[in-house]
């Protein structure tokens, strides 16, 4: 029998409880236990950013955070971004700028963008590249993603 810990945390503003083994990453908990599959597994060791979520206001790779470490903390995932009746400006900007193709990296990029704009509402292009350097995309070539972030910054201004 696996020994599981009981964890209580806040996810997208709601209190959530789950059981998990200590070796389960937050990514595994989100996807396999809570069925929040927005965060993706791309490499499972912190190199691609597809699993990016915001933990206590900081952008992290959920594949390198243990589920048990979210006790008493707050997690924001892609699923919590849009309002019930409309998309977040970042989401709109990604759509309008065609900043996605296969889309598997997109939730990670959007969370990284949110983390960036939350602390720096008016980033330069260099800053955008620097703060999104932890997210890999194999399809788009990044150019449209950078433009989407610039537009999102303008829209949120």
């Amino acid at each position: 029998m696996a020994i599981k810990s009981h964890v209580q945390t806040t996810i997208n503003g709601e209190t959530v409880e789950f059981l998990c083994e200590s070796r389960q990453s937050l990514l595994e908990v989100l996807r396999d236990e809570l069925h929040l599959t927005g965060a993706k597994e791309g490499c499972n060791n912190g190199n691609c950013g597809a699993c990016s979520v915001i933990l206590d206001g900081r952008l992290v790779n959920s594949c390198l955070v243990l589920g048990v470490e979210t006790e008493g903390k707050s997690v924001e995932t892609i699923e919590g971004l849009a309002a019930p009746d409309k998309l977040h400006p970042i989401q709109d900007a990604f759509l309008e700028n065609a900043a996605l193709q296969c889309g598997i990296c997109t939730p990670g990029f959007i969370m990284s963008t949110k983390a960036l704009l939350d602390s720096n509402p008016n980033p330069t292009e260099h800053e955008i590249r620097y703060w999104l350097a932890g997210n890999l995309c194999r399809c788009t070539g990044y150019d449209k993603i950078v433009r989407a972030v610039q537009d999102a910054a303008k829209a949120s201004a």
């Binding site: 996807r31 759509l95 065609a98 959007i110």
Partner: peptide
């Protein structure tokens, strides 16, 4: 603008892995 984009930017799009 791409259709299905909305599902992708909201995390609703289900890939095989999901």
């Amino acid at each position: 603008t791409r259709l299905s984009g909305k599902d992708k930017v909201t995390g609703k799009a289900k890939y095989t892995f999901d």
